[in-house]
């Protein structure tokens, strides 16, 4: 075999292997909105048809933090949840409704949490998919010669979670001396706290949580 053919074959094989090293998870990027997840779960021992009223506090509670700042856009989020509960056939109780022995069938607690993640590592330019660093101008020469150190990289991202929990305070278990109310339904929205459209994404997530939970409709629906 001619030398140039050997070199060509080795070069093709080498580039093929390098392309694959960076191609383990092709197209592994997400837009911010693609990172959103909506998770719901209902209690299948509950007869939701028999439920008609609920109470929801007018505040979203922070979990796992001592901050007292209100959750941004909380009024919009609570209004959207109330609208969806109404569409499911539930009547919202206010404090004024709880006169005498009248109590709501369930309580809907809404809470939020934030988590920060710092990830990082060493980026080896030999295996960089399409990224060649400042010392590779494209003219075919390399600088500094024979020295391609790994480059440190890091990224910080913050996720937010909004949790809705439907409980009946009159339906509880005593577990190790504690009174634990049974959760009838819960919905959790999780996503990246980035971008200018967080409010829209959360509102869409609330709608999706109820859309994928037809089981909790009351008999009036």
């Amino acid at each position: 075999m001619k030398k140039w053919m050997t070199k060509a074959l080795v070069a093709i094989a080498g580039f093929g292997v390098l392309a694959f090293m960076s191609g383990c998870y092709p197209d592994n990027t997400l837009t911010v909105s693609q990172a959103d997840n909506v998770l719901t779960r209902y209690n299948d021992s509950v007869n939701f048809q028999s439920l008609h009223t609920y109470y929801m506090p007018d505040t979203i509670v922070w979990r796992d933090t001592t901050t007292t700042d209100p959750v941004e856009n909380q009024t919009a989020y609570l209004n959207e949840i109330a609208s969806q509960m109404q569409a499911m056939g539930y009547k919202r109780f206010t404090l004024a409704d709880t006169v005498g022995s009248k109590v709501p069938n369930v309580i809907l607690y809404v809470s939020a949490s934030e988590q920060s993640f710092l990830v990082g590592g060493w980026y080896d330019p030999w295996y960089g998919g399409g990224w060649y660093g400042p010392w590779y101008p494209g003219g075919g020469w390399w600088y500094p010669p024979y020295y391609y150190p790994p480059i440190p990289w890091y990224s910080e991202y913050k996720t937010g979670t909004l949790i809705m929990e439907m409980v009946n305070p009159n339906d509880y278990d005593i577990i190790k001396g504690d009174t634990v109310a049974r959760v009838y339904w819960n919905g959790a929205l999780n996503g990246l706290l980035e971008g200018s459209n967080i409010k829209t994404r959360v509102l869409d997530g609330i709608d999706q949580a109820f859309k994928q939970s037809p089981e909790i409709k009351t008999s009036s629906k």
Binding site: F20, G23, C24, Y25, P26, D27, N28, L30, Q34, A35, D36, N37, V38, L39, T40, R41, Y42, N43, D44, Q208, Q212, S213, E215
Partner: peptide, 28 residues
């Protein structure tokens, strides 16, 4: 061999639990 498909936004139900999200699958 790398298998890959972008399934877009999907909703999956398992028992009483349902999840909606942007789904991508890979097999290396």
């Amino acid at each position: 061999q790398t298998f890959y498909k972008d399934y877009g936004k999907v909703t999956r139900t398992s028992g009483t639990q349902t999840i909606t999200g942007y789904n991508k699958k890979y097999i290396n």
